[in-house]
Amino acid sequence: MEATTRDLRLHTKEMLSATRRGEDVIITYRGKPTARLVPIEGERSKGRNPGFGMWADSQETDVDTKVRNLRQGRRCD
């Protein structure tokens, strides 16, 4: 995830939530990477959303099409 210094100031809670999910947050200042917010070692796997990466093993390349097909519902012919 990438965020600006303004995002960090205004959305600190969301940035910390991202680190709890195991994400690294790159902080940019004037468009240049300046700092990295990372989870504490050993905490990376805790609290990870079980749905994270659920499409990783999918044979289909287009996830949007797959989701649209799932949302269409059943057809009764």
Rank of each mutant, 00 (worst) to 15 (best):
R9D: 09
R6W: 14
A3D: 03
K46R: 12
R30M: 14
N69F: 08
D77S: 12
D7C: 04
L10K: 12
I40Q: 13
V25D: 01
D7A: 06
R71E: 08
G42E: 03
G31H: 09
I27H: 04
E43F: 08
L37G: 04
R20E: 07
G73H: 04
M1N: 04
A56Y: 07
R20Y: 04
L70V: 15
T19Y: 02
E14K: 13
G53V: 00
N69S: 15
D7I: 03
E60S: 14
G51N: 02
D62M: 12
L16A: 07
R75L: 10
R21M: 05
R74L: 14
Q72T: 11
T19A: 05
I27Q: 02
P39Q: 02
S17L: 09
R75W: 05
E43P: 03
R74G: 13
L37Q: 02
T4A: 12
F52I: 01
F52K: 08
L8R: 08
T19H: 03
D57M: 09
P33S: 06
A56I: 10
V25N: 04
L70Q: 14
T4M: 13
Q72R: 09
R74P: 03
T61M: 08
V63A: 07
P50S: 01
R20A: 13
P39W: 00
T28P: 02
V67T: 07
E23G: 01
F52S: 06
L16F: 12
E2Q: 12
Q59M: 10
G31Q: 07
V67A: 11
W55M: 07
T19K: 03
G22H: 03
V63Y: 04
T61K: 15
E14Q: 15
T61H: 11
R75P: 03
S17F: 10
M15S: 08
E60V: 08
M1Q: 05
